[in-house]
């Protein structure tokens, strides 16, 4: 087990190096003169020269890459061209915001998806099964950004049930400690605020969680159907165990692996989809941070934002891989 984790970590090294190479090249692959592109056509020669010097663009590539990686290892993600602030400091609240959003989106996706899949498998070929799978089929094909816009229109603008933008009531900002607002509100024991924050979270979480929910539901259904036919389930039934116990205690356990794989893969989709959802709901997460940086040609932020998101994705997949061995001890590596 330990050996497996170590091997898995070693395998990560070339991937991480490759990731830094890709984010490093983001600036250098800009056609023409990067500094000129960043500053725009109207920039003076002097300004271009200054930027080239401050970004170290005059050095040879290898040296530049060396500096880039050394800085990264020191935890220095560079300086934003727009705000002139250190990205490492600036980025944390955005990461927390995205984490909070993806966490609730995944919670929604797993809770509804797994249960819908289980009931569909349990009541195979029933009207519930048919409707759930039809819904799942459509759910996989829905563009996240369109769903988000529709939700915003119906539930925020027309019905006014939920706020359309942001993480909290902007006139009454929270004194953030961890930057995870739900957690922060708990720390302050401010229960009305928890309610407000959850209300802000609901629409974006559902928009972001719909595609994973649909995929998880389909996966759960098919792996449950497979497990339900196995001998040990028949034995459990023969013992006289109730349907609920058979499904949730015995069958679900063995249907978990494929479901977990899907959850791991979908987290990447979520992190990507977060860019779209965050843009629509003005959610101050890392996706929107990167997107705004593109509009301002703030390349250091683009580089670091992309790297951080990819890094998170890799780490989540690592955790899922390690979880496998805990959940199913039969898996040996």
């Amino acid at each position: 087990m330990t050996a497996y984790i170590i091997r898995r970590l070693l395998h990560l090294i070339p991937v991480l190096i490759g990731m830094t190479l890709i984010t490093f090249s983001i600036v250098h692959l800009i056609p023409g003169n990067p500094a000129q592109t960043i500053l725009g056509e109207a920039a003076t020669q002097e300004a271009v020269k200054n930027l080239e010097e401050s970004m170290g663009l005059n050095e040879p590539y290898i040296k530049q890459y060396g500096i880039y990686v050394t800085d990264l290892l020191k935890g220095d993600l560079g300086t934003s061209l727009r705000t002139k602030a250190a990205i490492t400091k600036e980025i944390w609240p955005h990461i927390a915001a995205t984490f909070e959003l993806t966490f609730f989106a995944m919670l929604f996706a797993i809770f509804i998806g797994v249960n819908a899949g289980i009931i569909s498998a349990w009541k195979q070929n029933s009207w519930f099964d048919f409707l759930a799978m039809l819904f799942a089929l459509v759910g996989v094909s829905i563009p996240v950004f369109w769903l988000a816009l529709m939700e915003q229109w119906v539930f925020a603008q027309e019905l006014g049930w939920f706020p359309a933008y942001g993480r909290e009531n902007s006139r009454d900002p929270i004194a953030a400690i961890t930057q995870f607002y739900v957690l922060d509100a708990f720390i302050h024991l401010d229960f009305p605020r928890i309610f407000t924050i959850l209300k802000h979270l609901l629409l974006p979480s559902i928009a972001l969680g719909t595609i994973p929910m649909a995929i998880i539901a389909r996966m759960t259904r098919s792996s449950m159907l497979e497990v339900m036919q196995s001998d040990y389930i028949r034995t459990v039934r023969a013992k006289g165990a109730g349907q609920f116990l058979v499904i949730y205690k015995h069958a679900l356990k063995n249907a978990t692996i494929p479901i977990l794989t899907v959850i791991g893969l979908q987290t990447g989709v979520l992190l990507g989809g977060a860019i779209l959802t965050e843009t629509i709901f003005s959610w101050p997460g890392i996706g929107r941070y990167v997107f705004e940086a593109i509009n301002y040609r703030d390349y250091p932020v683009i580089q670091s934002g992309v790297l951080v998101i990819a890094f998170l994705f890799v780490i989540i997949n690592l955790i899922i891989d390690i979880l496998y061995t805990y959940i199913d001890p039969r898996i040996k590596y």
Binding site: V15, I22, G268, G272, V306, I309
Partner: peptide, 18 residues
């Protein structure tokens, strides 16, 4: 492996940004 380590739409956005 490296290309797949990026959430796909994010990498597409980065490429278009370049």
């Amino acid at each position: 492996d490296i290309v797949l380590a990026f959430p796909s739409i994010l990498l597409a956005i980065a490429i278009v940004a370049i």
